[in-house]
């Protein structure tokens, strides 16, 4: 089982690297899907089969489909790939890279300092999750429901139609000029 964990981890990391360095949005999305699936496997090895299923269905399934739709609607094409190429400079990567390496070093340090004992794997069943979700976390569930509602309405409102190019104040300024 450990072997599976490590293999899945390596796949997830490699796929993620491919995502953030990709030039073509569709390719990156496919790599992202791979990464998410690998994380799903990791969930499975951590004893959370229900989460693994949700990861595959919602993340890798629903959310990624949304992305693919949008990328298709935008239809960026070859010109954008060239532009991505020009944005892809060594200078842009240096600072963030250093910062993240520092952070990673610090996090690894934390994990090595607080080394706990390894323990047997216990599978937490969906039943337990459900009991917890609709027991002590019921308020959170209701809030999440409202959030999703707000997301739906917001997405509908924002994406409804082609809006004016400027804010009304700016527009007035534009007209006067």
């Amino acid at each position: 089982m450990n072997v599976i964990f490590y293999i899945a981890s390596i796949i997830a990391i490699m796929a993620t690297i491919m995502v953030i360095t990709g030039r073509n949005a569709v390719h990156s999305l496919l790599f992202l899907t791979v990464s998410l699936l690998a994380v799903g496997v990791v969930f499975f090895t951590l004893g959370a089969p229900f989460m693994a299923a949700l990861e595959v269905i919602i993340y890798a399934g629903a959310i990624m489909v949304l992305f693919v739709f949008v990328v298709m609607m935008l239809n960026l094409g070859k010109a954008y790939e060239k532009m991505e190429e020009s944005w892809f400079s060594y200078k842009a990567w240096l600072g963030p890279g250093i910062l993240c390496v520092i952070l990673l070093g610090e996090l690894i340090y934390v994990f090595t300092v607080t080394k706990g004992s390894s323990q047997p794997l216990t599978v937490i069943t969906p039943q337990e999750v459900g009991m917890s979700l609709f027991g002590p976390y019921i308020l959170g569930v209701e809030l999440a429901a409202m959030l999703l509602m707000a997301g739906i309405i917001g997405a509908y409102h924002i994406g409804r139609k082609k809006q004016k190019e400027y804010h009304r104040f700016l527009q007035k300024e534009e007209e006067s000029v």
Partner: peptide, 19 residues
């Protein structure tokens, strides 16, 4: 009956997050 290492999952999370 496998044992999972306690910190590897967190480490993977950190690496993915930073990426």
């Amino acid at each position: 009956m496998t044992h999972i290492p306690p910190n590897e999952g967190l480490l993977l999370a950190a690496i993915l997050f930073l990426l």
